[in-house]
Write a protein that binds this DNA or RNA. Structure first.
Lengths: 369, 369
DNA sequence: ATCAATTGTGCGAACGTTCTCATATTTAGG
DNA sequence: CCTAAATATGAGAACGTTCGCACAATTGAT
């Protein structure tokens, strides 16, 4: 490159032009300490004239604060994380904070790298949807190293960090209860249900029913299954294990296969409960492919409210998580910690809203015994 | 806070423990220069033992490179920006770069603040969907200050920065031609059409028809109107000015009002062309509200392919921009510039794909003369 | 054997801020 | 008038790295 001038106007040059020390120039430009009205003007004028831009790197190096918060999302491309991120970014911006973003794709290895990078970049705090809620030594280490953490959507067991979640268990129980009340006895469920530390779905059923399981220690999809089981128990309806479509991974393809299989059974469910945005879209796709009518052939309730649920055929009844609000709350908690709040850990549980629309009806007839 | 230890293990301490100079420790840990195998091991062991984490701030301050690229999106919450961002983040991560994100909400003032913040944080480059393509002095200044810029979706007139866009004019022309070929003579269009430097829609029509307008200097929605006009001209079909629904702002409410008005006319169009994701969703909403059947009562083609377009009633025919690819390309261009590429500006135009589905049919009858 | 690379090391100066300290000067209260 | 606070300034040391330089020690080709 021929020319590479400009850009590096330092505070020293501004000070020189203004005829004061760098210390004084720093004080007026950084706004910290005493300066005479006289010098304030002179320094500001010089800064303006030279087109001075403070170098936040240098400031951060000495203050130890970067005014940047790191975010590890699963996948910003999903409306779920996109909305949360929006909430975070808004609050951060309002306070002059920047947002450093990474995706984990729910892969622990990625998360590890991401957290590493963010910490090296000296972020003031970390907002994360943790992949692994049972161990996550790296997160414990981060906290120990003085980096406050706010968890989103799920909670690492025993981690000293705030959290913002939704009562998935109650919301799910509510959905299933509504379906049961409408007369459905065979309610299908499509859920990720990837990791559970202590066994398989059968074990899980037992543990829920004998109340020896703390839902707070689970991944959301397991919490939602928790509510599904509870609702059935409360209504005295036995659960057909075959109706619990465990996808086992966060994958559209796998979910599609699983859903098609579930809905193609001769004794297919009369109602379906999808447990997140991905499975809802996939289910809708399968339903269209199989030419099933909603709610005549199949009732449907979805977790996560997507824009198309408003205007599709009959509206789709759904649970809406307050996503941007969750992001905002997370950022607010974070900023409080950064400002020095060292009170006890806060675990916010925001209220989801229930969007009653037209996808639930009474079952037309029993498909099979 | 009672304890605030750990976290600050510096390279000096590592060096001391390893019994070498900070320079040597720096060389092995930073991987830049010569070091004996012997010392390499010793230093690495010491670093490991102390839990050393490099402070990228300090490194950046001296190298002048932060390995961070700034992104100014309109609104990450929209699938459009979310997908682009995903592409950017992937490429960045693969090269060890971080992504600093901000939203402009397409507001110049916000963009100004955002760019300011990013520059002060010393980003290595800026990827932006610029609000104002006619002036943007701040972007020219950034380039002059040595910060490479890659523009997305639209191009600031005369700005020395690369760009990644889509041929909106051609894609739009193609859509309209298909509708015309299907027999539609009254094709409605809903578009933002917020800013055009040189006048109103009438003037624009004239300028397009006498070929005195360079589409590259326009906002996407105007480019799409450009194609709409051209297609009509090519087919020899006169344009009814009333069918061009100019929303005038990026607002769902305004778009809804405009769309409802357009579709409620006694001489309503027999086909509709929506020009982005927002207007498509809004149009779908309006269509449902008015109880119009697709494609019987109304044919529909949308710009931007959204997930629900696959599984809604008849599939919705749409133009799909290669969003993640655009993000990836933008990041790639950016990284090349950062690595020192000072070749001529590149203006990439990626090919959109056309998803032919079931929302287009011949018009059933003329609604009115 | 000689000279020029190549390899290896440490010292101390950067980078652009803020911070600590020392030292004035002004203000205010008795 | 005196003293204590408040206001104002500058010199120079931080912050944690990398970089330039000087200087050895080792190579390898003539």
């Amino acid at each position: 490159m021929a020319e590479k001038r400009t850009s590096k106007v330092t505070i020293t040059e501004v000070a020189k032009l203004a005829g004061v020390s760098t210390a004084t120039a720093g004080r007026v430009l950084g706004g910290y300490g005493y300066t005479s009205e006289d010098n304030k003007e002179r320094v500001r004028a010089s800064a303006e004239k030279l087109g001075y831009r403070p170098n936040l790197l240098a400031r951060s190096l000495i203050t130890g604060k970067t005014k940047t918060i790191g975010v590890v999302a699963g996948d910003i491309q999903s409306p779920f994380y996109a909305s949360i991120l929006r909430g975070i970014a808004d609050v951060a911006r309002a306070q002059g904070f920047g947002v450093l973003l990474t995706n984990s794709d729910e892969l622990l290895e990625r998360e590890l790298e991401a957290v590493q990078l963010l910490l090296e970049k000296q972020i003031d705090g970390l907002i994360i949807a943790p992949c692994d809620i049972y161990d996550s030594a790296h997160l414990h280490a981060a906290v120990r190293a003085g980096c406050p953490i706010v968890q989103i959507d799920r909670i690492v067991n025993g981690l000293a960090g705030d959290s913002v979640t939704v009562d998935n268990r109650a919301a799910s129980r509510n959905c299933i209860s509504q379906l049961l009340a409408a007369g459905h006895h065979r309610i299908g469920m499509i859920a990720e249900l990837e990791r559970w530390a202590s066994g398989n779905v059968e074990t899980f059923l037992d543990r829920v029913l004998d109340s020896s399981l703390d839902p707070a220690t689970l991944f959301p999809s397991w919490q939602r299954l928790f509510g599904y089981i509870e609702a059935h128990a409360a209504a005295g309806i036995p659960i057909d294990r075959d109706l619990i479509g465990r996808v086992g991974a966060y994958s559209a393809e796998a979910a599609k296969t699983r859903t098609m299989a579930l809905l193609s059974r001769p004794d297919r469910p009369t109602a379906l409960f999808t447990v997140d945005g991905l499975t809802s879209a996939v289910a809708m796709d399968a339903i269209t492919a199989l030419n099933l009518r909603i709610p005549d052939d199949l009732s449907l309730i979805c977790f996560d409210d997507l824009d198309w649920m408003t205007f599709i055929k009959p509206g789709i009844t759904a649970v809406a998580q307050p996503l941007t609000a969750m992001g905002e709350a997370a950022a607010q908690l974070m900023l409080a910690r950064i400002k020095g709040d060292d009170g006890p850990m806060q675990h916010l549980s925001l209220e989801p809203t229930f969007a009653q629309r037209g996808s639930v009806a009474a079952p037309m007839f029993a498909t099979t015994a």
